[in-house]
Design a protein around this nucleic acid. Structure first.
Lengths: 205, 205
DNA sequence: AGTTTAACTTACCAATTGGTAAATAATAAT
DNA sequence: ATTATTATTTACCAATTGGTAAGTTAAACT
């Protein structure tokens, strides 16, 4: 019934692949190594996912699925205008903190020309279109300031993806408590969104 | 006399390597391919740089050198307190826009555990120490608000590195005019720095 | 002219990579 | 019990990878 089971070999492969892809990258990930870490032969992986790229796509699909579900949840709420945007931002930061591997994967896959970027785009496009549409209609009723929705969304996106780098850089510099920078980023993003979108907000200075 | 010549085989190899490392990444870069693009045998590369990692380190050294020189220039100016910080921020954004490959390289090499991260750290540490020291002394005279200098610097750093992703993502989405987002980022960063450091600045709301 | 040094090439290699094909084991269906 | 299907393995391979060793050419020195 399920598209993929959380347990069982297939699920375990996806978990291990996520780990490796998001921390070492696609090219540096060896199917042999991943297989060995699971006590399984490489061909088992290829049996389930056919090719290495297929495995990456499956990982992307699963993780982006989680992300998209969370977004849908907020989109289906009855929050209006600015409030919905803010809820969205908070939700994404919460998710990013809870699942840092997701962040790493997004960063890996966000580089245009990378193996998984195509699939990510395909998954994100409908969501993007829907968000754009909604924002435009909000703009027409005057609940939202007029700007290019795609620009705002993508800037927000790369703020979140940039978190991955930031957290890792800070950690590498020996600063373990990476919570504060994250909070700062969130505040920054929300302010950016507010300035761009909230018609009732006056930019001071 | 020079440490490396801009022309000649060695320089051309460094150029091509920078291009490949910063757009495709370290692992995805093949020495054979780079060599072929230069009309040269792979062994010529290895003759000049011994190993692939050695080549990466040389590239990092050259590029980080440029970056550090520009930073030194501002640090040696007679600007005080907040003004110096702002000049620094503007300079880095100018550089980043002029040399996008540098950004890509930094991103590639900023991932902890990546091949060049060690060398980058070694190059950046003295600069970081110096900046930290300066900021601390400014704090003591009250020209700067009290915070953890490293945290501020690293956050600024990852903002700049994050630009690489952002520009590419925007371009991939068909938004060619990537200038505005960059301006927005710069404004954001300067505001962040101001809030963190400028004692004369009052955070509204 | 002869010798040394630097720059580059040809030839080669061991290791790893993703992937194919076929065999075997396990589970489900009849 | 037998068949069919799914899951996993063993065996193998062609291609690519970074790297070594030795040869060749060109330039610089003496």
């Amino acid at each position: 019934m399920e598209k993929y089971e959380k347990f069982g070999t297939k699920g375990k492969i996806l978990d291990a692949a996520l780990e490796s892809f998001s921390t070492s990258g696609f090219d540096a990930t060896s199917l042999d190594v991943v297989a060995k870490s699971l006590g399984v032969r490489k061909q088992t992986i290829l049996y389930h996912f056919t090719t290495k790229k297929g495995l990456l796509n499956a990982v992307v699909e699963r993780e982006a699925g989680n992300l998209i579900n969370s977004i849908e949840e907020v989109l289906n709420s009855d929050l209006k205008g600015w409030e919905r945007i803010e809820a969205l931002a908070r939700m994404i930061f919460r998710l990013a903190l809870r699942e840092p591997l997701l962040l790493g994967l997004l960063r890996e896959v966000s580089r245009p020309g990378s193996a998984g970027s195509e699939r990510l785009r395909i998954l994100m496009t409908p969501l993007m279109d829907r968000a754009t549409f909604w924002m435009q209609s909000e703009m027409e009723v005057g609940r939202m300031r007029r700007t290019d929705p795609r620009l705002v969304i993508l800037s927000a996106y790369s703020t979140v993806v940039g978190l991955a780098t930031e957290i890792e850089v800070l950690r590498a510099a020996g600063i373990e408590q990476a919570l504060r920078p994250v909070t700062v980023r969130r505040r920054e993003l929300i302010r950016f969104l507010r300035v761009s979108l909230d018609p009732d907000y006056m930019q001071s200075k």
